[in-house]
Simulated assay, not measured.
Amino acid sequence: MSSERRGQIEAVVRGAVPYEQGLDALAVAPAGEVDPALFAAVTEAGARLWRGGWQPAELHRVVVRRGGTDRPVLGRVVTDAVAAHLRGFARRDVDERWCAQAEALDATVWWRADATYASELAARHRLDRVSALDDLLSLLVVLAELPPIEVLVPPPGTAPRPRAGGRQAGGTAVDEKLLERVRALLAKAESTGYPAEAETYTAKAQELIARHSIDEALVARRDGPDAAVVPFARRIGVDHPYESEKASLLSAVAAANRCHTVWSPDYGFTTVFGFDADIDAVDLLYTSLLVQAGRAMARDEPPGGKAGRARLKAFRQSFLVAYAVRIGERLGRAAEAALDAAPEAADLLPVLRSRDEQVRETMQRVFPRTVRGRGSRVDSREGWESGREAADRAAL
């Protein structure tokens, strides 16, 4: 591999050479020297980020966000970098969650040789050679700007051996059959056009989630302080548009389920801190409620068009703010009712307080300095009122 080409690529990525000048130089250089160097630079950048805490789905999301609709190939190249990285590890040495994200992205080695990847990429996506080089070089610039983040899932090659009956090292066993039942109930709630049916399905799902979480706390109380149950964190993607308002909804759902959140707008995800069963509840409920909110908002919103675009945007933002506030109130009351109805409810309170302290300590260790976010503006009274009404109708 030509060290000269690697030097040219690194100079463009660092900004030492103007981007267009660097791209032109690579475009006229021999493909047999440029292509292997570009692919190696992409895989090395990916490996650095995997070691630095990034997971496949997260890196794919942030690259797609920054690349925009004008560069759809960038996300595909990230997926290929995942596949290339996994070639160096046996399946048993890769965490199940890492594998699941790679499979969800359909990360497979489809190209014949690394040295010809750029040419094969151009042919696969019907690009001319300069456009393919431009995409690869642009991706390298994006990857170089990303810092290390907290390692929440062990990168390939460092996965701990799973404990018998456990979901992950240090975690507790989660009944996958129960989660499947919850997912099925929420899917029915999202698909039905009848609010009463949706409420029945989702209320049953919430009941199952709350019961499992309370049972886990009771087990922790019986096992005593030496029980190997520690809080974890999970990053949940929050997508355009109205991502700040969606992050507020996620925060409200998390708070009702004894979790804490930190929103990272630059990267498009919220880190949710809590115990496994509670984070599962947050993930499932947030996804379902977001679907229900979107359906209600589309039904109630005013007509758009050029003249009504500003009104429509204000309506949607105000709708989602009100929806998040009202859902938080409803979920909070539902959580209190579930706790009051639980056996040994009085004995549970000290356990829940202790677990909350553990979660807070974990969050503060990962994010020692956070800034309280500004509240979203409410510029549409009809959007606010519609959002609260939709939250009242939402199935919990």
Results as ranks from 00 to 15, higher is better:
residue 326 R to K: 14
residue 338 A to P: 06
residue 344 E to H: 13
residue 334 A to D: 04
residue 342 A to L: 07
residue 294 G to S: 02
residue 290 L to S: 10
residue 285 L to E: 04
residue 308 G to Y: 03
residue 325 V to Q: 06
residue 304 G to T: 13
residue 332 G to W: 00
residue 326 R to N: 10
residue 313 K to E: 15
residue 299 R to I: 04
residue 305 G to Q: 01
residue 310 A to H: 14
residue 340 D to S: 10
residue 305 G to C: 03
residue 278 D to E: 15
residue 344 E to V: 11
residue 332 G to N: 03
residue 272 V to F: 08
residue 282 V to L: 07
residue 327 I to Q: 00
residue 326 R to H: 12
residue 330 R to K: 08
residue 338 A to C: 07
residue 313 K to V: 15
residue 287 T to K: 07
residue 276 D to G: 15
residue 282 V to P: 07
residue 326 R to C: 10
residue 305 G to T: 05
residue 304 G to Y: 07
residue 286 Y to W: 09
residue 284 L to D: 02
residue 289 L to C: 02
residue 306 K to V: 07
residue 307 A to R: 14
residue 320 L to P: 08
residue 275 F to D: 05
residue 294 G to R: 01
residue 304 G to Q: 06
residue 307 A to E: 12
residue 326 R to G: 09
residue 282 V to C: 09
residue 315 F to I: 13
residue 274 G to L: 02
residue 281 A to F: 01
residue 312 L to A: 14
residue 289 L to D: 01
residue 341 A to M: 08
residue 338 A to D: 05
residue 320 L to R: 12
residue 273 F to E: 02
residue 315 F to E: 08
residue 293 A to P: 05
residue 312 L to V: 13
residue 280 D to V: 04
residue 330 R to D: 01
residue 315 F to N: 10
residue 340 D to C: 07
residue 335 A to R: 08
residue 287 T to F: 03
residue 299 R to S: 10
residue 301 E to I: 04
residue 311 R to Q: 15
residue 319 F to D: 11
residue 339 L to T: 11
residue 317 Q to C: 14
residue 293 A to I: 09
residue 343 P to W: 04
residue 282 V to E: 06
residue 295 R to V: 12
residue 287 T to M: 04
residue 302 P to M: 01
residue 300 D to M: 08
residue 342 A to S: 15
residue 327 I to S: 00
residue 295 R to I: 11
residue 281 A to S: 12
residue 329 E to H: 13
residue 289 L to M: 07
residue 286 Y to M: 04
residue 324 A to Y: 06
residue 331 L to T: 03
residue 293 A to M: 12
residue 324 A to K: 03
residue 325 V to I: 07
residue 288 S to T: 01
